[in-house]
Simulated assay, not measured.
Amino acid sequence: MPDVGDLVTASLTVAPYDETTSAALLVTRPDGTTVSPTVTGSGGGQTWAAPVSYTLAGVWRLSWTVTGTGASVEHQLVSVAPAPGGGGAAGRTYATTTQLANYLGTAPPLDSARLLRQASVLLDTDFLLTAIYDVDTAGIPTDSEVAQAFADAVCAQVEFWGEVGEETDISGPLEGVSIGSVQLQFGAGDNRTGPDYYAPKLTRALASLPSDKIRFGVALGAC
């Protein structure tokens, strides 16, 4: 599967063919725009090739039109991935890939940017929705201790996903964890049938913050 930024050679083999065979290529990008790259033939009309530069993630359609002997129309669908490390939609991220590398003590995953955004969204929605702390215009904590704790928290979550997988769901985790007035209790006893969804070091990073730096306003209770 190609990535965004790849320049590849699209090719077509025609049969039957002879000196009257000719081929043209129409490339339809995921956004609906089209381009017709220069096509060159070889083998007396048997093989045709054209350069295609993948500039967008998504599904591309390559439509070959053959005229003369072997006349036909052939469509090829190509799935293009985002550039490695590019991730998806932009959003607030509490740690950089450099911070993640230093936290892990090793080279981070190629999709670190996406994982850090996902972990930051998890932190925002599951822990910080009612929290009160000083931020800048981008929503990033202005207090260095809070910013460091948030960075440690999302890095811990990415590390945790690397161990158990991103799809690990809540199945009886975190009985009795408290962060200020926030209390998380998702199951106990026989309800503990699976691993926690939250990294234990994530909750510890938040719990280490003094109350004069951040205040968690609403207790979540048992879910």
Score class of each variant (00 low, 15 high):
3 D>M: 11
5 G>D: 02
17 Y>P: 04
19 E>F: 11
22 S>M: 05
23 A>F: 03
25 L>M: 06
26 L>T: 15
29 R>P: 02
30 P>S: 09
31 D>I: 07
34 T>W: 00
37 P>Y: 07
38 T>R: 08
40 T>I: 12
42 S>C: 06
44 G>M: 09
44 G>I: 09
46 Q>E: 13
46 Q>M: 07
48 W>Y: 15
50 A>Y: 01
50 A>E: 01
51 P>L: 06
52 V>M: 04
54 Y>N: 04
56 L>R: 08
56 L>S: 03
57 A>F: 07
59 V>T: 15
59 V>Q: 13
60 W>N: 02
62 L>R: 00
63 S>R: 13
65 T>D: 06
65 T>I: 07
67 T>F: 00
78 V>C: 08
79 S>N: 12
81 A>N: 14
81 A>V: 00
82 P>E: 03
87 G>S: 06
87 G>H: 01
87 G>I: 01
87 G>M: 00
88 G>W: 05
89 A>M: 11
91 G>Y: 03
94 Y>E: 04
94 Y>F: 15
95 A>D: 08
95 A>T: 09
97 T>Q: 12
101 A>S: 15
102 N>T: 14
104 L>N: 10
106 T>N: 08
108 P>G: 10
109 P>T: 05
109 P>G: 09
110 L>R: 10
111 D>T: 10
115 L>G: 06
115 L>E: 10
117 R>D: 03
121 V>F: 03
123 L>N: 06
124 D>W: 09
125 T>S: 13
125 T>D: 13
128 L>K: 02
128 L>E: 04
130 T>C: 13
130 T>W: 07
131 A>C: 08
132 I>W: 08
132 I>Q: 15
139 G>Q: 06
139 G>P: 04
140 I>F: 13
140 I>Y: 12
152 D>F: 02
153 A>D: 04
154 V>R: 03
158 V>K: 05
160 F>M: 04
160 F>N: 07
161 W>L: 02
163 E>R: 14
166 E>R: 12
167 E>W: 10
167 E>I: 10
174 L>V: 12
175 E>Y: 14
175 E>L: 11
175 E>S: 13
180 G>H: 05
182 V>P: 01
183 Q>R: 10
184 L>V: 15
185 Q>N: 14
189 G>N: 13
193 T>W: 01
194 G>Y: 04
195 P>N: 14
198 Y>I: 12
199 A>W: 00
199 A>L: 02
201 K>Y: 05
203 T>D: 00
205 A>D: 01
205 A>H: 05
207 A>T: 09
208 S>T: 06
209 L>P: 02
211 S>P: 01
211 S>C: 01
213 K>T: 05
215 R>M: 10
218 V>Q: 12
221 G>S: 06
222 A>H: 07
223 C>N: 09
